[in-house]
Design a binder for these strands. Structure first.
Lengths: 158, 158
DNA sequence: TCGATATGGTTGATGAGTCAACCATATCTG
DNA sequence: CAGATATGGTTGACTCATCAACCATATCGA
């Protein structure tokens, strides 16, 4: 990669393996989730958030903030999920512009069936392979990077 | 997240921040690459690989192995890139089934213009924020996970 | 109170990734 | 050598993600 010439030895190595890991790991986990439960990562994230909200419903804006998604992304995804009966949309009484998203019983069943195996896969391919120290460093890295992003990019105005 | 109940404190934290970091970081880097250079990550990966191949060309299979892509993914991507004049396809003399992909002068110009700013962004949002020790641990983690994936999934038969 | 602007969300177009089915050529085996 | 099988690649259908344009309602300020 042209990385090699523009980065130091150490940086190049970290960057390269990070990228490969990220891509391969996501591919495998997505694949298994889809195969085992018929859900995509996107479905999973939304259902997980709704499932533990009180009443199983959230205003779209609140949901977007929790999962950090762009608004059109959520809109499209919810439309597809509503089509499949995983989720329902309601008008919001306090703000006529807003929408409330509610998980359906089918949606709840789907996420409850999916979660254990999905988490197990995350363990199998990732978490169980790492030492406590490695897990801590990873979390540390995540916090640093997320903190920097929060400070140096627009809130999610996108 | 339902993660919280199925994972220990430490695992949940690592898993959660890793996922958030992964998503946000990729979004920002993609966005900047697109804005600054008119290339997607996918374009970038392919052009980078071709640019440092001898003669600027590789057999499709060789390219796939280097970047670890599924075959239809490469096929689609190359088709789009050929459309834009970044890349050209040739028949392979030694194996009539195979195709050779060659970077065009436009493609070379594009990657050479894109690389420095892309790497700079990777530094700015990621590499420069981390200590040498953190970079090493990250690379270590990557190797462990990739090694496990290599041993426990089909080579890429997908 | 009214007009400008901001905000929450939708829509359509397009690029990207995956899967399954497929086609052609190579290779292997009897 | 012939037929079966394996391999390299393409295609079409579909889901996802992003962008820009848009619509309706809220809110702000003169």
């Amino acid at each position: 990669m042209s990385e090699s010439r523009l980065l130091g030895e150490r940086e190049a190595r970290a960057w390269c393996t990070y990228n490969k890991m990220r891509e391969h790991l996501a591919a495998v986990l997505n694949q298994r989730l889809q195969r085992d439960s018929g859900l995509s990562e996107a479905d999973y994230v939304i259902l997980a958030a709704l499932a533990e909200a009180p009443e199983g419903r959230l205003r779209a804006l609140e949901l977007r903030c929790q999962i950090g998604w762009e608004k059109s992304r959520l809109s499209h995804q919810v439309a597809r999920m509503q089509q499949r009966g995983l989720v329902r949309k309601h008008l919001c009484p306090t703000d006529a512009r807003s929408a409330e998203i509610e998980i359906t019983p089918e949606g709840r069943a789907a996420i409850e069936a999916a979660a254990p195996t999905h988490i197990a896969a995350a363990r199998e391919y990732f978490l169980d392979l790492l030492s406590p120290e490695q897990l801590d460093v990873l979390a540390e890295i995540g916090d640093i990077v997320l903190g920097h992003l929060a400070r140096h990019t627009r809130p999610s105005s996108r």
